[in-house]
Design a protein around this nucleic acid. Structure first.
Length: 423
RNA sequence: GUGAUCGUAGCUCAAUUGGUCAGAGCGUCGGACUGUGGCUCCGAAGGCUGAGGGUUCAAGUCCCUUCGAUCACCCCA
């Protein structure tokens, strides 16, 4: 019996895996450059970690979580996003004792039970960062800049940055009342889903693509206009920091993200290459989240990038072309009698930091060359009875076909010189 | 969860209005060159046509179910 990978999952084959590694290592370097450190949290958490933080009324919690009971009857959930686990870990490990802010990044798979589509899978990868412990608007700007500059470093163009402010607990409740009243007054003109949203989560009304709903919401009160003075100042500072770094942005009052924990700044970056699932990265501030997990009041901000969406965009820009990943040396064995000696040399090369491989299929010499060519080795070294007797080996440059002969004891040294010098 | 389109060798695709043993290119392996790749030529392996059922003398082709893929809604990264 043959099995497919489960719906919405896929095998990341070497060609793609290599590209992802490239994206991840570039990210790790840049995050370090901005003062962020790696953290690895469990793939699953107690279900409550997500229901309480993301919000019970959100789609993620309502219908997209992989929730199961373990053998002891605990309700566990495969993480649908990365922020809640990191905040849980922050509180759990008393990280408020560390110098603040605590700046962390993570990379790994997330899980949501959704209908698969271009750029949307049930197991998908995210690259994310969180900065916990400061409410400085300069940190909001840093978070946004970090994401934008990372994209730039990958050669991405044509991205659009949207920002918004969701207010805080001083202005949001008042505004929500206003919004509810407005929506209620226009209930009849709203679609069925939106009528439900009036009570559940009226902010989401802004997201609806239904024409009639959009028409209604166009004239709805906008949170941005009701921001209390601190929040407005904060948002203005964020914008100013972005402008200082010459970052273009569009303020989008309708930008309401689907996780309830956001406060103040939210942002999202859109790529033109991604079809319907065009958000390549997004995030925001979550000043109430640490408290939600039982910590002392602590602000925070972060974002997540969709790795496969990022890979699609980078691919479209042709920016993967520069990845060089060829192996250094293939050892061609001219006669099986020379194999033990050849293997000896193989390991010596590897130990010297030169990537090397050998035939394990009993191929003819000719077939070995063919194989070396297909696998893209830079050099082939010939080992056979003749070479062993004369103590000289031939080294063939597989690109140019040039072949030189050197003393066998010099092989390691010469290969190391060649390989290091050229790359 | 809803809708549309689509499932034929590892990959990309053929197969007349349902009608002989389901084909090709690429890839893999081997050979032409008995110790030297890339080009060319030759050969081999590889398919219960996604799965299950039905209609028919006859199904890759028509119908139903199911699974999966793709795209959109929805949602978000």
């Amino acid at each position: 019996m043959r099995y497919n990978a489960p719906k919405g999952t896929t095998d990341i084959l070497p060609d793609t895996a290599r590209k992802w590694q490239y994206l991840e290592s570039k990210a790790a370097n840049m995050f370090k450059n901005y003062g962020y450190e790696p953290i690895i949290t469990p793939i699953f958490e107690h279900t409550e970690v997500f229901t309480r933080s993301i919000g019970i009324s959100t789609d993620i919690v309502q219908k997209e979580m992989y929730t199961f009971k373990d053998k002891a009857g605990r309700s566990l959930t495969l993480r649908p996003e990365g922020t809640a686990p990191v905040i849980r870990a922050y509180v759990n490990n008393n990280m408020q004792q560390l110098p603040q802010p605590v700046k962390l990044y993570y990379m790994g798979p997330m899980f949501r039970y959704e209908r698969p589509q271009a750029g949307r899978y049930r197991q998908f990868w995210q690259i994310g960062v969180e900065a916990i412990g400061s409410d400085d608007p300069a940190l909001d700007a840093e978070s946004i800049l970090l994401m934008i500059n990372y994209f730039k470093s990958l050669g991405l163009k044509g991205l659009t940055l949207y920002i918004n402010s969701m207010g805080c607990d001083k202005d949001r409740p008042k505004y929500m009342e206003l919004l509810r009243e407005y929506a209620e007054a226009n209930r009849k003109r709203l679609c069925k889903d939106c009528q439900k949203r009036i009570d559940l989560n009226p902010l989401r009304l802004f997201d609806c693509k239904d024409e009639s709903c959009q028409l209604v919401m166009k004239d709805a009160p906008k949170l941005l206009n009701y921001l209390e003075v601190d929040c407005r100042k904060h948002f203005n500072m964020v914008k100013r920091y972005l402008e200082m770094q010459k970052i273009e942005y569009i303020v989008k009052p309708e930008l309401v993200r689907g996780l309830d924990y956001y406060t103040k700044t939210t942002f999202e970056v859109i790529s033109p290459f991604l079809g319907a699932q065009n958000a390549i990265g997004g995030g925001g501030r979550y000043d109430k989240l640490v408290e939600e997990f039982g910590g002392s009041p602590t602000p925070g901000i972060g974002f997540a990038i969709g790795t496969e969406r990022l890979a699609i965009a980078v691919e479209k820009e042709g920016a993967f072309d520069s990845i060089e990943d060829r192996m250094d040396v293939f050892i061609a064995v001219a006669d099986q009698s020379a194999k033990p000696n050849a293997i000896d040399i193989l390991y010596a090369l590897r130990e010297a930091g030169i990537s090397a491989d050998i035939d394990y299929m009993g191929r003819s010499l000719k077939a070995q060359l063919k194989y070396a060519n297909r696998r893209g080795f830079k050099y082939t070294v010939f080992i056979g009875p003749e070479e062993l007797e004369k103590k000289r080996v031939a080294v063939r440059n597989m690109e140019t076909g040039e072949q030189i002969e050197i003393n066998i004891d010099e092989l390691i040294k010469v290969m190391r010189d060649i390989v290091m010098e050229r790359f």
